[in-house]
Write a protein that binds this DNA or RNA. Structure first.
Length: 587
RNA sequence: GCGCCUGUAGCUCAGCUGGAUAGAGCAACUGCCUUCUAAGCAGUGGGUCAGGAGUUCGAAUCUCUUCAGGCGCGCCA
């Protein structure tokens, strides 16, 4: 129906102007909206086109509205078409058309809400990408839930989506991890030495033990392969220098042991991260390793060729023995170092090469989901994208703010270095994957979130997660009670169609809004819109349920009601699925 | 100092590509379980949308400005 009106509006607009003003018409078409009304008081469909047109063409909006009303009436498609101040047009559908949404939903089920607005555009979403130096914590959980949800939403709206995890398996943090594991192995046998800046969590111990178990044949006696007396070269005055000294002496002492512990540790941690994410119902299509960008000294590597191209094109230059990138192109406030004066590349250099590689892989849009503390990093990456000859608009960075956990009314402390923290796995074990995802997504991603564990487990209406699930469960238990084997599509809708039963009208109106909600969530990358919509829909369902005793209605009414409630259930289920949450049928 | 985010009911938040009387939950008060799940429903009270100025037929929404809070500004990752 909206399609019909849209078409009519376009020809109406063209009739208002002569050929020279086509540009203004396009502006109007871009700006006006046509949508399902907020409440049934204003009919079923509304548009503000006359007000928008009036302001751009300097005409009177009320007069335009009257003209358009006449035109729409001539179509003979609607029950009523009315103008409302100061220029709204409200369309009331024939009852049969208004109700027909029930059958279409029951017909296409899980596809209701899907669209092709993405038009097959290829989008890549890179998220989580936590350093493989320890388990995922609750901060990572929010990015995981968010990235996965927008992946599902974009896919449902016609985009081709790839979800990618970038593994920082090269660089200093990994060296510290490797050193930590080796020192744990030694210290359990030989000495107690452990630098301040090494990783200390229990998981380091576990990795050490597993390494010994799996490789005891080749490294039976650690003392023979590693002369630990030489370890104490490091200066103990400076924590940073100390760990660096330990790293380089461990490498010098036995590079084979170093490499094999490094490989083993990264694998152990990546496996455990993948495992946690699986429990969280998050999967990735691709795991990209920083190490695959290659070595800066190898001219054929991605990282070297990226830097060489930047230098060739005059965007990167040498100064003070380092290589710098001019990032002013994007409004960054200073130039950034790509390669240090000791010829080691910075983290930024890897990221420049990584983004070049992503663009070379042919995506139309790259979505990066980063912790909000990285926002200062956006401009320099944009600059590198432009400098490499692409458009910075290709990349969209979505920032995810920190989440604070509260338990028994108190903030749960989190600190990574001490090794004592609340992991994502802890969270899932405590309240479940679905409730966790729900609360992570219940607020805009770029704003601080207070995550209340007690609320997420409580039995009250305040716990929106269960409020929505309860609505879904009520519908299915009612259908079961009516007839466990009912074929919904065979039910007769006539008593709602004939308006002899209209208590479901608010529900019907609400479910007809759902596709707009999904579209908006996709356009704005905001999954929380779906949560708030589902809460409103659930509220209408609970209210209806309380006021009406379905199974004591006439047979004809029951058939129509069950059919309608089933379509409501489909919508709740579809919405939850877009968030990666499994709808429940029994509480 | 510069950049980003935020300020809406006592509390936690929706609403922000401008649109119809500013919404919801909690808390307070009042009702509803012999009937399909009370993890529910109905009702009452509660607002200078931080302050000011501007653009507009129309501003919580856009612009400017002031105030308040958070975060970021490494040859760290």
């Amino acid at each position: 129906m909206i399609g019909h009106i849209d078409k009519e509006i376009n020809s109406f607009l063209l009739s208002l102007v002569d050929g020279s003003n086509k540009e203004k018409i396009n502006t109007i078409i871009e700006k006006y909206s046509i949508s399902i009304t907020e409440t049934l008081n204003n009919g079923h469909i509304t548009t503000n086109v006359c007000m928008v047109a009036a302001s751009i063409l300097k005409l009177n909006s009320a007069e335009l509205a009257l003209k358009l009303v006449e035109k729409l009436k001539l179509l003979n498609l609607f029950e009523a078409v009315e103008a409302a101040d100061p220029g709204f047009i409200n369309v009331t559908l024939h009852r049969k058309d208004f109700v027909s949404i029930i059958n279409s939903i029951n017909d296409i089920k899980e596809r209701y809400g899907e669209s092709d607005i993405g038009n097959g555009k290829k989008i890549q979403i890179e998220f989580v990408s936590a350093n493989p130096t320890g388990p995922l914590h609750v901060g990572h959980g929010r990015g995981a839930a968010y990235g996965d949800a927008i992946g599902r939403i974009l896919k449902a709206t016609g985009f081709i989506v790839q979800k990618e995890y970038y593994i920082n398996d090269a660089g200093r943090q990994i060296d510290i991890l490797t050193a930590s594991v080796i020192l744990k192995i030694i210290s359990s046998e030989i000495s107690e030495y452990f630098p301040q800046n090494a990783y200390k969590g229990e998981y380091i111990n576990e990795i050490g033990k597993n390494f010994i178990k799996k490789t005891k044949a080749s490294y039976q006696n650690l003392e023979s392969v590693l002369d630990v007396q030489k370890l104490y070269l490091g200066s103990k005055d400076d924590d940073e220098k100390e760990i660096d000294a330990v790293i380089s002496s461990l490498k010098d002492l036995n590079i084979d042991l170093w490499d094999s512990v490094k490989k083993f540790s990264v694998k152990e941690i990546v496996d455990s991260i993948e495992n946690d994410l699986r429990k969280f119902n998050v999967s990735f299509d691709n795991w990209f390793r920083e190490s695959s960008l290659g070595n800066i000294n190898d001219n054929s590597s991605i990282i070297a060729s990226s830097i060489n191209k930047l230098k060739r094109d005059g965007h990167a230059y040498e100064k003070d023995n380092a290589i710098w990138l001019n990032t002013e192109i994007s409004g960054d406030d200073k130039h950034r170092v790509l390669v240090r004066d000791d010829r080691r590349p910075t983290y930024f250099a890897s990221d420049v090469a990584y983004h070049k590689d992503k663009i070379d892989r042919g995506f139309d849009t790259l979505i990066n989901i980063w912790g909000a503390d990285h926002h200062g990093y956006i401009k320099r990456i944009e600059a590198s994208i432009e400098a490499l000859g692409s458009k910075k608009e290709k990349m969209i960075v979505k920032l995810v703010q920190f989440a604070n956990l509260y338990k028994n009314g108190k903030k749960v402390k989190m600190s990574t270095r001490s090794g004592d923290f609340f992991t994502l796995e802890n969270l899932i074990d405590e309240i479940g994957s679905d409730a966790s995802r729900f609360y992570y997504l219940s607020k805009q991603a770029d704003q601080h979130l207070d995550f209340d564990l007690d609320l997420a487990q409580s039995d009250s209406k305040e716990n929106i997660f269960y409020y929505i699930q309860y609505a879904h469960a009520r519908i299915y238990s009612l259908i079961d009670k009516y007839n466990k084997n009912v074929d919904i599509k065979s039910l007769n809708l006539s008593s709602i169609e004939k308006n002899s039963y209209n208590q479901c009208d608010d529900l019907i109106h609400e479910i007809s809004k759902y596709p707009d909600v999904v579209t908006k969530a996709s356009n704005t990358l905001q999954p929380h819109l779906i949560i708030f919509y589902l809460r409103d829909l659930s509220q209408l369902l609970h209210s209806y349920y309380n006021d009406n005793h379905v199974l004591s209605e006439s047979n004809e009414n029951i058939e129509a009601i069950i059919s309608c409630l089933s379509s409501v259930g489909v919508v709740i289920s579809n919405g939850l699925n877009l968030l990666g949450i499994t709808p429940i049928k029994k509480m």
